[in-house]
Amino acid sequence: MMPVVERDPAEKLRAYAQPERLVTTAWLADHLDDPGLVVAESDEDVLLYETGHIPGAVKIDWHNDLNDAVTRDYVDGEGFARLMSSKGISRDTTIVFYGDKSNWWAAYALWVASLFGHADARLLDGGRQRWIEEGRPLTTEVPERAPAEYPVVERDDTTIRAFREDVLAHVATGGRLVDVRSPGEYSGELLAMPDYPQEGALRGGHIPGAANVPWKRAANDDGTFKTAEELRAIYQGELGLAHGDDVIAYCRIGERSSHTWFVLSQLLGFPQVRNYDGSWVEWGNLVRVPIERSAEPVRLSPVKG
């Protein structure tokens, strides 16, 4: 067994429901050489890791590594085990994910790792941006890690992942939906730009009943997460979500909503939060599914009965 990697005891983190899911840059800088800890960079820009990364960090490419090359789906248990093994990650390794864009893809990679039940996966608060802004070291040297043993674990698609059928049922029962895209995407106006290539959806708008809370609301400008108190004020206060609510989050292709999934399920501790990774590029192309178009913000009211 690997030695257990301690938690980051930073005060800010202690107020979150699961403080063990986040680490600060200062903590990581002191723990880069911990046995049993692997840092993994996942970026939107697939070349960013090559331009410089946290010393010792491996690259996990959301497109090439986490997605199946043919079917629009994630890799299966064998594929995931192969990936983890090749990065020197075993089942009891502590993975610290970080990346660009306030950790969109890092949260996405963490969410995919959670589909396979990887127990100790954490995010670096502030991600790549904060690490660089603090003047911490980067290297272009790619670490050579010995392959690790990683078991083949079946992916669990039922607990934190939602498919379109789940979303349809959710709409029918008035379940809580959070659209985390920008207001323009939510209202549907962004697909109306003339001459511009469309971003993969034939219809604009949002899933009926969805509230619009752009993912960015949960992040500070330096990419770190807002405090527990600030997050509660947004999602529980302003939006009216209750702790036990069954919530589905979505965006365009499931990356920004992974960020919100992380906030709701890990930082606020909501027990039932799913990410609809099909998101708008699926919903906006589906025949005969209901679509709502309005810029009016929806406030989630309590479900009756």
Partner: peptide, 20 residues
């Protein structure tokens, strides 16, 4: 084979602007 299709559209979009 190495970059997602949505991102690759950026290349077409840039060329489209140049042409315009």
């Amino acid at each position: 084979e190495v970059i997602s299709p949505l991102r690759l559209r950026g290349m077409s979009a840039i060329l489209a602007r140049v042409k315009r």
